[in-house]
Design a protein around this nucleic acid. Structure first.
Length: 90
DNA sequence: CAAACTATTCAGC
DNA sequence: GCTGAATAGTTTG
């Protein structure tokens, strides 16, 4: 657990429901906008991949980077949140 | 401290 | 659309 990791977790947890951010975004909030690589590292090695919405973090190209449980799950969660958002919002 | 690793991103063709 | 180069932090020896 490092300061950078904590910052990354806070940034990721700050992502609203149904929303997605890029690693660069998280890295910037974490402190260094050029540590997107480290962000991925910290995310993949995060102590609690469940309490952290790491599935809301995707590549800048809108591409799925990776996921602890599998890319399919990540995509599924993203689509699920969008669908749920539509049901809740409108 | 140094080397290796990484769920990325930008630039050139 | 693909290939090559660059950045910053964690991890391991």
């Amino acid at each position: 657990m490092t300061k950078f990791a904590i910052r990354v977790y806070r940034a990721v947890l700050s992502i609203p429901f149904g929303q997605v951010r890029s690693y660069k975004w998280v890295a910037q909030k974490a402190g260094s906008g050029r540590a997107y690589r480290a962000v991925g590292q910290v995310l993949k090695r995060n102590p609690y991949p469940l309490i952290i919405p790491c599935h809301r973090v995707i590549r800048s190209d809108k591409e799925i980077g990776g996921y602890v449980f599998g890319l399919k799950q990540k995509k599924f969660l993203l689509e699920l949140e969008r669908e749920l958002l539509k049901c809740l919002a409108g």
